[in-house]
Simulated scan of single mutants.
Amino acid sequence: MAQRRSEESDRRQIHEVVLRYCRGIDRLDFDLVRSAYHPDAIDHHTGFTGTVDDYLAWVEPKLRARARTGGTMHILGNHLVELHGDEAVSETYGTSVHWGEPADSARANFTSGVRFVDHMTYRDGRWAVSERWAVREWTRSEVGRFMPKEGEGPSGRHDDHDPLIRLQQRITSRKAGS
C-alpha cells in the first residue's frame, strides 16, 4: 500500500534520509549510505566532488582503515526543511567526531562542526539526496583528549557483534519464527 504524502511525512522522511546516511557512515554500512542518495546524485565533501558511486569508492577505504583503530560518530542537531513540491532544501547542523591511531595525529583525532546542505528530491516513491554539500564550518584537534573507558560495558564495533546489529538480528529472528 502506497504511503499517503503530507508535509509532515515528507519532512520526517527527509530527516530519516540524513539519519540513515550518518548511521551508514558510522557503522560502515555502505548500502545504507547509498540508500540516502538517488543513483545519479552528486556529493561535495572536503577533498572530494563527484557521483555517489565515486564518493563511496573514495570514502569506504578511508573509513575501513579508520575502523581498525578507531571510528567516527556523527551527531545531528538543527534540521530545517524547505519543501517545494517534489524538491526540498534540507539543512542539517551536526558534529563529526573522528578518532584513531596514531593517538598523537591531529588528522586521525579531530572534531568538526558540519552542515549537510542537501537538495532532496522525491522520485520513484522516495525522498533522497540529489546533491549534497558537506560544509565543514570548523575543525579542532582532539589529540590528547580521548581516554579509555572507565570500566566494562558495551562498546561500538564494526561487525556483527555491535549492539545495534545484535538487537536487529534478535528482533528479525523472532519475527521470522512467528
Rank of each mutant, 00 (worst) to 15 (best):
S130K: 15
F30T: 03
H45I: 09
M120S: 12
E16H: 03
F30N: 03
S178C: 08
S155C: 02
V114P: 07
E142Y: 00
V129N: 11
T139H: 05
Q13L: 04
P39Y: 06
D40T: 15
R12A: 08
R132A: 00
R166E: 10
A67K: 01
A108K: 06
G100R: 13
G50D: 07
G177Y: 05
D159C: 00
D160S: 08
E16Q: 10
E91D: 09
A106V: 04
R157Q: 10
N78S: 15
V129F: 12
E82L: 10
G144K: 15
G24K: 09
R115E: 11
R140K: 12
Y21M: 02
D54T: 09
R23M: 03
F48Y: 10
H45K: 04
S141E: 10
T69P: 03
L164G: 01
Q169H: 14
R34A: 12
Y55A: 05
M1F: 05
D159P: 05
W133N: 05
R107V: 10
R34H: 08
Q169R: 15
R68I: 06
Q169Y: 09
G100A: 08
V143G: 03
T46D: 10
H119Q: 13
L80C: 03
G177K: 07
V114D: 00
A36V: 12
E16F: 00
E91L: 12
S105F: 11
L19W: 00
G85S: 04
F116N: 07
M73A: 11
L32N: 08
R174D: 10
A134W: 04
S6L: 01
A128S: 11
G94L: 01
L80G: 04
T51Y: 13
T46L: 11
G24A: 10
E60G: 04
Y21V: 01
R4D: 07
R123Q: 07
S90D: 09
F110T: 01
V52E: 14
I25V: 00
S105P: 09
S90F: 02
H84E: 13
A106W: 05
Q169S: 08
H79F: 02
R132K: 07
P154M: 06
S112Q: 11
F116H: 13
R27W: 11
E82R: 10
G100H: 14
L56P: 15
S90V: 04
G151A: 11
A65S: 07
G125S: 04
S173F: 04
T92M: 11
W127Y: 13
D40G: 13
R64T: 11
T72Y: 14
V143C: 03
G50S: 02
M1Q: 05
R145F: 07
S130A: 15
R166C: 08
P61M: 06
T172C: 01
P163C: 12
S130G: 14
A41R: 15
I75A: 05
E142R: 01
I14Q: 14
G47H: 14
T72A: 12
S105K: 13
F146E: 00
K175E: 05
I25E: 01
G100C: 02
L167Y: 13
G85P: 07
Q169L: 09
R157A: 12
G94E: 08
A41I: 07
